[in-house]
Nucleic acid binder design. Structure first.
Length: 244
DNA sequence: CCTATTTGACCTGT
DNA sequence: ACAGGTCAAATAGG
């Protein structure tokens, strides 16, 4: 899967509000393109025309995806590596950790025992506002893969209503390797819904949600959608089965 | 200023 | 005592 080198122009100087609007608009374009793709392709007779249409539509969708990534990188991207060696370096220039449809703020970072790279702790930006308990940790995997791989652990379900949440916009089909995948459900504590731990790489999260697989009618959290899709998919469901 | 990140200190469970 | 998760003061950057 490509890792994009993003050149973010700081001269455009969009305000926060502009970012939100722009992202919304692009997501709208993405969604419409996706719908067009779903309507158009089956109605075309198989052949080079259908192939061409598919290519063009996929390119449009991919451009939307990149544009959103760029906007988001430009929006909060300013990480310089300090001491402490190789931290994750999520934003500008180089490797970009993929978006998962939510906005997070980082509140900590820890060096983990045997691990080469630190683990960073993030919570939903609506933690205060809507006291949304969702949390995730991100950790680069030890063995350096070329497109670097991260393990993302999602800890609590979102309870927030984020208006401009966007679904992951990744189109590439699934050659990327499964790093590690694990899930379990905890018994609920003090009235919270059962808590789901999902351990998967960013790569997998995105792959699981290709437009074809995304169910238009569900407005579930992307992570939950992953489960829906995974349950129906022979490969992923067998992986999940072993872990349940 | 304001907001987000960094980073050592602090907390908690094993 | 230790590992790992969180807090919060200092810092960075717009």
């Amino acid at each position: 899967m490509e890792h994009t080198n993003l050149l973010v122009s700081t001269s455009t100087d969009l305000s926060h509000w502009d970012h939100h609007l722009a992202i919304k608009e692009i997501n709208e374009a993405h969604e419409l393109t996706r719908q067009l793709r779903a309507v158009l392709l089956p109605s075309l007779p198989a052949g080079s025309l259908a192939e061409l249409a598919r290519e063009i539509l996929d390119k449009i969708i991919k451009s939307c995806s990149l544009a959103v990534l760029m906007l988001q990188s430009g929006g909060h991207g300013h990480q310089t590596s300090k001491q402490h060696g190789e931290g994750e370096r999520p934003m500008l220039d180089g490797h970009v950790t993929r978006e998962d449809g939510h906005q997070w703020t980082k509140y900590g970072q820890k060096r983990i025992n045997g691990a080469k790279y630190p683990r960073s702790y993030h919570r939903c930006i609506y933690h205060k506002d809507q006291d949304c308990p969702a949390t995730k940790t991100v950790q680069k995997v030890d063995r350096d893969a070329d497109p670097p791989e991260f393990i993302v652990v999602y800890n609590m379900q979102h309870r927030c209503r984020s208006s401009d949440r966007h679904i992951p916009l990744v189109l590439e089909s699934a050659e990327a390797s499964l790093v590690k995948n694990q899930s379990r459900t905890d018994t609920p504590s003090d009235g919270d819904p059962p808590m789901t731990h999902l351990l998967l790489s960013d790569e997998i999260l995105n792959i699981s949600l290709t437009p074809e697989q995304w169910n238009l009618d569900n407005d579930l959290d992307p992570v939950m959608s992953f489960f829906e899709f995974a349950d129906a998919d022979p490969f992923y469901s067998s992986v999940l089965m072993n872990l349940r």
